[in-house]
Amino acid sequence: MDFSFLDQLWVARFPLLKGLGVSISISLSSIVVGTVLGVFVGLALTYGVRPLKWLVRGYTDFIRGTPVLVLVLASYYVLGTVGINLGPFQAGVLALAIFCSSHVGELVRGALQSIPKGQTEAAKAIGLTFPQTFAYVLGPQALRQALPAWVNTAAEMVKASTLLSIIGVAELLLRTQEVISRTFMSLEFYFFAGFLYFVINYGIERFGRYVERKTAVPS
């Protein structure tokens, strides 16, 4: 019997890979759902009528002021008490998506508000309707503006996915802990898990840079 790390890694390859897969699908789902929601949040914060704006402002302030771990726990344990029974995966993704949406909402609002008023006026002056102005003038500029911060948020979501181990989602961290409890190689396996998270986030960051370069406006 061999107790070297690489052998143990080989033995544990399937659980770890599964965990990695779960981590990625948690991150992806919460980023996608959170971004879609967040765009609506941002639009409501920027263009919404007063009562809607206040409501959404309250939502984002509340969510952003709450620890993600609390959101995860609340989503799993509290929703059950009011009759909404979600599995740990769904409850966790819901919590992360809501967290993500409040951050993306702020990003979108900031990006839209940073565009000079003259842009809207020039679009109006050539006869564009508001939806057209948004689609061709404001949206593309806001996207470029928001992209770097959005990449940051996406990386944050990957890191936050580890919190789902608390409610028993068998993602990478929980799988790693299981392997460690069997092998006692805590240093090696925690380091390995950390390395995997780093690789994912580094990939996201490189991808963001690439898109930034591709969409940069010549000047």
Binding site: A125, Q132, V137, P140, Q141
Partner: peptide, 30 residues
């Protein structure tokens, strides 16, 4: 609004579009 044309003090060109695309936007969409 499309019956009048306006030029502004601050130009207000769309920075993410080429000169041609700036001129073409209204022609195509409006």
């Amino acid at each position: 609004r499309a019956l009048t044309g306006m030029a502004f003090q601050q130009f207000n060109l769309f920075p993410h579009m080429s000169a041609a695309a700036n001129v073409m936007l209204g022609l195509i969409k409006v």
